[in-house]
Design a protein around this nucleic acid. Structure first.
Length: 108
DNA sequence: GGCGTGACTTATA
DNA sequence: ATATAAGCCACGC
C-alpha cells in the first residue's frame, strides 16, 4: 500500500457518493492535509482510472467546475453532475449547501 | 538530484 | 470585491 498522497486522494474521490460533489480542499482535508488541494488537482489530472475516479464530481470551492477542466469542458461536467442528480443554481454553480459531500452523513 | 509547473485553497492587504 | 504570497505533492527536463 502506498502512503502516497495520490492513493489517499483517489480513495477519497472514489468514496464520493452518487449525486454529491466535493471540493478540492474538502478532499485534500479528508486525504490528510488541507493544503493538498493542488495535489488533488494533479491527481485527477493524471486520472489513471476515470471509471473509478469520478473527477467530474470534484469541483472548486465555489461549487463550480475547474477553470481548466480538460475532460470535455465546463458544461460536460455540468451535464454529468446533473445526470447524477446534482442541481445547479442560476449562477451556474452547484448548490453546495445541498450537494456538497458530507462524510459525516455517510456513516464512514 | 534540482527547478519549474500544475484541474487549488487559505490568508493578508 | 480583487491582487499577491505561501503551502503542498508528483512529474518532466
Amino acid at each position: 500500500m502506498s502512503d502516497s498522497a495520490f492513493e489517499r486522494i483517489y480513495a477519497v474521490v472514489r468514496r464520493i457518493p452518487r449525486g454529491k460533489v466535493a471540493s478540492y480542499g474538502q478532499i485534500a482535508r479528508l486525504a490528510g492535509n488541507p493544503r493538498w488541494s493542488r495535489v488533488v488537482g494533479y491527481a485527477l489530472h493524471v486520472n489513471p482510472d476515470p471509471e473509478t475516479i469520478p473527477c467530474y464530481r470534484v469541483v472548486t470551492k465555489e461549487g463550480r467546475p475547474s477553470p481548466a477542466f480538460a475532460f470535455g469542458g465546463f458544461w460536460e461536467q455540468v451535464y454529468l453532475l446533473q445526470k447524477d442528480g446534482v442541481a445547479f443554481d442560476e449562477y451556474g454553480k452547484v448548490i453546495m449547501d445541498q450537494y456538497q459531500w458530507r462524510p459525516d452523513e455517510q456513516t464512514l
